[in-house]
Design a binder for these strands. Sequence first.
DNA 1: GATCATAGTCGTCTTCCTGACGATAAACAC
DNA 2: GTGTTTATCGTCAGGAAGACGACTATGATC
Lengths: 253, 253
Amino acid sequence: MPYDPSAFPPFAVTVDLVVLTVRSHSLCALAVRRGEPPFQGRWALPGGFVREDEDLTQAAARELLEETGLRAHDPAAPAEPPQENGAHLEQLATYGDPGRDPRMRVVSVAHLALAPDLPAPRPGGDAGDARWAPVEELLQPAGADRDQDASLAFDHAHILADGVERARSKIEYSSLATAFCPPEFTVGELRRVYEAVWGVALDPRNFHRKVTGTPGFLVPTGGTTTRQGGRPAQLFRAGGATLLNPPMLRPEV
Amino acid sequence: MPYDPSAFPPFAVTVDLVVLTVRSHSLCALAVRRGEPPFQGRWALPGGFVREDEDLTQAAARELLEETGLRAHDPAAPAEPPQENGAHLEQLATYGDPGRDPRMRVVSVAHLALAPDLPAPRPGGDAGDARWAPVEELLQPAGADRDQDASLAFDHAHILADGVERARSKIEYSSLATAFCPPEFTVGELRRVYEAVWGVALDPRNFHRKVTGTPGFLVPTGGTTTRQGGRPAQLFRAGGATLLNPPMLRPEV
DNA sequence: GATCATAGTCGTCTTCCTGACGATAAACAC
DNA sequence: GTGTTTATCGTCAGGAAGACGACTATGATC
């Protein structure tokens, strides 16, 4: 028997996406321009309503596909096969302040997606406009009352900050940084991911020792590449290990 | 202007609580007996609807107070003062499978609470019956079709498992284990918390060196106690540090 | 009161991990 | 060839952790 509908207040439930990637040595997030009020013309995180018959994860994966064309990896599958164009997707947190949306009570289940640098910088979602923007730019405090405020709509700056912090801490103790890389990558490319996400410089020699010395983290594919200039580097795939033990800790402040 | 109500499906939003404590050297969770269908008579996690004017955290804190009498610490406050009877409360994850509640579409924002062992084992919530049960017992796979199934209702076993895993991993790199202790405690009591949560035995000497050697983790109060038998032990309060660096890692499998 | 059991606290030793940094290797640009 | 860039291997010192010995201070037992 259904609940008495008067026994509880009705909510709208949405998913919002923090989609991160590393472009030209800086951590970027996907932002879409709002086509309607409130916050019309301002940038926001992509997202949308959860449908009647959908799981939260399904809704997030659908939005991700619509906005970026990226398919989410199934975290259930061991992901051993040479993963094609796909992104890591996980639930981040849920935001439900009354008043976070001026129109009505909306609870948003935010998700975090990590993607390799996309060949097509212009995602073709149903939003009018979309772009990759460096996270420092999007997290800038609300500028002066210019018509074109660079800060994000709603509480999306807060959500983005939480997503960035999750990514920063999670690559410490997991192999998640490989989600920012193409299927085959070099140690140097992986190091540049860490450097971009953490915003620090790492010692190439110690980094190399750490990642090649952790069993199950990297699997050599046999090939080499020279796409970064300099001496050719070995190519690797992500190994089966998902947890790094001991972790790779961020340098102290 | 409000949304067109037909533009999105209405959801019920609830908070469910994973309340953990350490009792007689084992990790226990709070379970309440359901007084109505579905799953009438089965054990479940405490929880309830989010009200119209409430934040998610407020709703969780209200439910916690109703079920246990515990007041949630404000994580914003530095929590330096000798914290009175209070619990740590944080958002855990959100569960929204269609069909997780047979009556209608319910999205539940689960929260994790960590509390010291309560003097009153019988929480006086509005639920008819409540108890502290060892988590292994609650996580047992659904028993044979006995009338009195010990397993939890809905997807609450899944939620509980996620909460336990969060607690197990979070005490590695934070000072959160002190949330299971009374305001003043000994190193041995803190060690028994770790042992109960992780289900392992730790070396008392190395543990003592680690926790007393981490700056800001423990502050001696000057007093001593002998309530555990044996040589009297120094009493400590939780220090201001919330992050342990380097972390205290769980022993390998 | 002597002995024992129980907990707590301080040290030692070895091993592993990391940060700092020197050195060599293999490509490309000129 | 020379210089530049990136990759990779090696060395060394310092810190942290696991294993474990030794001593201390209580209450319980004989």
